[in-house]
Write a protein that binds this DNA or RNA. Structure first.
Lengths: 209, 209
DNA sequence: CGGTAAGTGGAAGAAAACTTCAACTTGGAA
DNA sequence: TTCCAAGTTGAAGTTTTCTTCCACTTACCG
């Protein structure tokens, strides 16, 4: 697609890698909003270098997380091939949250699309139909109640993620309990009320502001 | 407890009320972090007046929300008197979230204690034993699985609240679906694993940062 | 009414983060 | 070895919000 217009000078490439590694570490523990200055200082470079290499935070996020996002897309694809649709859904949600548990930044990315723009947008566009297919199959198989929608699955994701966010620093496994609650809830709730609007699923992953 | 040391001058009292009303409105729609300047401007006063009346944001929050908090405590008390413990829990959680649905600020308050300090701390201290009692009763009655703890109820609260936060602007009723999922989840999940630490429930309501 | 303590307004200083830029350094081609 | 395009640095300007402060206004007591 986009070849390296001209390869970076060796020292520049070294700095770039150093900044990426450092940024990844900091964002894993502190989230996506780490100040550029903190990253630069931790990497031992000046801020100018940050800005030259990653003029928009977007550029940094893309470089940092695109492979991780691809991994998650891979999980969705694997899940969609499960014979047991419900098992596939549970497996996928658990994989996704394990990834988010390892990196706070990645969690913010996967659950609030606006921060990542195109990258995550595309991932969701890719995964949503797969999830929708699994849900339809699970409903048909009687594994999920009639009326269950992809938005409910997204809601479950957001729900467990919120517990993860709130507890990661003092109870790093608590989210698994929340996951058990969310999954048992999906299976057993009465979801026959009017289904959420189609567009809800998209907007649910966008933090507005 | 604390009588008005000396009553405010009439114009000052009028301004105070005006600021409170304005702050309540703004915080209901935008959350607790509305800049003081925005409140002052919307109320038509200067910032100096804000700071004279409410030197700490804490003071403003206390004045704004203490009666609402008392209402929620009242809900907990009412719920604890239900014969049907599970019905009491569901009723309480729904009341609490209805309150949060009406005011974004109140939701932030009820689900991240650190912003409100003593006020919310006391409310939680008061409500937690009531909820714990209900849960114990519900477990005994076979309405909740063995191993269910107050922390699980708190988690359910956080979970539904996160959906409320994410969707209030475009799907103001979606949280009810999340509530159905959370409640069905509590009843049906396997919660027999090692129970969360006693202190988890407190820290779950504190946003760390 | 007049004096004054109480109250008010908004400019100005401070803190945190973002962003730009001009002077300086360096890798590597010739 | 030389040279210069590429790269780096950190200080300085901006923005946003918080917070203080003092000159000005006003309620109300006597």
């Amino acid at each position: 697609m986009s070849e390296p217009a001209s390869p970076l000078r060796r020292d520049a490439e070294r700095n770039r890698q150093l900044l990426l590694r450092t940024a990844y570490e900091l964002m894993a523990s502190q989230g996506l909003d780490v100040p550029y200055e903190d990253i630069a200082r931790a990497a031992g470079t000046g801020m100018g270098t940050m800005y030259r290499r990653f003029p928009q935070r977007q550029d940094l996020l893309d470089a940092l997380f695109s492979e991780h996002i691809d991994t998650v897309i891979g999980f969705a694809e694997q899940a969609s091939r499960y014979d047991d649709a419900w098992a596939g859904l549970g497996w996928f949600l658990e994989r996704q949250l394990e990834v988010e548990a390892r990196s706070r930044g990645l969690g913010e990315l996967l659950r609030s699309r606006n921060q990542a723009g195109a990258l995550v947008q595309r991932a969701h566009d890719r995964m949503t139909p797969l999830v929708a297919g699994l849900i339809a199959r699970a409903v048909r198989a009687g594994q999920l109640p009639a009326g269950a929608t992809p938005a409910d699955f997204a809601a479950a994701h957001v729900m467990v993620g919120s517990v993860l966010d709130a507890s990661r620093d003092f109870a790093p496994q608590l989210w698994r309990r929340a996951l058990a609650i969310a999954l048992a809830g999906l299976r057993n709730a009465d979801l026959s009320g009017d289904p959420p609007d189609e567009t809800v699923i998209d907007r649910l992953y966008n933090d507005q502001k």
